[in-house]
Amino acid sequence: MKKLGFLFLLLLGIFSTSCIPHKDTLYFVNKANALDSLQTIKEMQKPYRVQINDILTIRVKALDQDNVRILNPIDSPNLNMTSGEKSYYDGFTVDAHGNIRMPTLGYINVLGYTTEEVEELLEEKLLEEQFKETANIFVTVKLAGMRFTVMGEVGSPGTKTLFQEQVNVFEAIANSGEIPVTGNKKEVLIIRQYPQGQKIHHIDLNDVAVMQSPYYYIQPNDIIYVPPLKQKSLGTGETLMQNVATVATLLSLVTTSILLINRL
């Protein structure tokens, strides 16, 4: 009986250490004396610069709209198309050389420009080549949505598109079904595209200082990966009560097996 009690205590100790600590399930833990987050976030909000494979939506307006009709997309008769699908077909994709190809203007290099700089560039080219100042040319350029992919321990993994100028990592994850208890918030990976290739960045969503990170705001085509905690791979419970129940089941199985063996 003493051996049985010792076995019970041993199993209970092993499984209790496999519980997921409450602090690891939280966001915004103040692990140090954080700086003024409001000021830091403002510093992080640098304008995005156009990269290869981005899709730009471009609209040109003038006093006589018929003169710029060729530069604007034609309304699709397919009412079942989503906003993302319309942007894909009507937008201008940045090719491998950083160029977009526009009617009457030809190829224009926009790699590394902000959307505001692209607007100024297009207005200048239109005024130089086709229109006069009296035409009152007005160009708007936007990214065709913030497209990103979330993988791993989230409720709804997959590729998402949000139609807004900026998206932080918490908004991206919230739109992907949230991170379950078994997700490792401390070791989230951001896989980001650069002109020279892809790089992997680590961020800790458990720490409030994540708002100071240059990767707090995601960029188009980012891949966000949330790895599982080791408790999931071990197959243990997420809470102490779940582990106690598992221990009780195992102990009952062991006890029954011992009794049956002794009767033989």
Rank of each mutant, 00 (worst) to 15 (best):
M1K: 12
L4Q: 13
L4P: 00
G5F: 04
G5Y: 09
F8D: 12
L12E: 07
L12C: 01
T17A: 09
C19F: 06
I20D: 00
H22V: 12
D24H: 03
T25E: 14
Y27P: 00
F28R: 13
V29Y: 11
V29W: 09
A34F: 13
Q39H: 08
Q45E: 15
P47F: 10
P47R: 05
V50M: 02
Q51H: 11
I52T: 15
I58H: 01
R59E: 13
V60W: 12
V60T: 10
L71G: 07
P73T: 09
I74S: 14
D75L: 11
T82Y: 08
T82G: 15
S83F: 05
E85W: 10
Y88V: 10
Y89D: 06
Y89F: 08
G91C: 02
G91H: 01
T93F: 01
T93N: 01
V94N: 03
A96M: 03
G98L: 11
M102Y: 12
T104D: 03
T104P: 01
Y107P: 01
V110M: 05
L111G: 00
G112A: 05
T115L: 03
K125C: 01
L126W: 06
L126G: 02
Q130R: 13
T134S: 14
T134K: 08
T134G: 01
V139M: 11
T140Q: 15
T140G: 11
G145L: 02
R147W: 01
F148H: 04
F148L: 07
T149S: 15
V150Q: 14
E153W: 04
L162F: 12
Q164L: 05
Q164H: 02
E165Y: 02
Q166M: 09
Q166T: 10
V169Y: 01
F170H: 07
A174K: 09
S176V: 05
G177E: 06
E178R: 02
I179S: 04
I179L: 06
V181F: 08
E187I: 06
V188K: 03
V188F: 04
I191N: 08
R192G: 11
Q198T: 13
Q198Y: 13
D204W: 08
D207A: 06
V210K: 09
M211A: 12
P214H: 06
Y217A: 05
Y225I: 04
Y225D: 03
P227T: 04
L229P: 00
L234P: 00
L234E: 13
E238C: 00
M241S: 13
V244D: 00
A245L: 09
T249M: 04
L250P: 08
L251C: 08
S252R: 10
T255Y: 10
S257T: 14
R263H: 05
R263L: 11
L264Q: 14
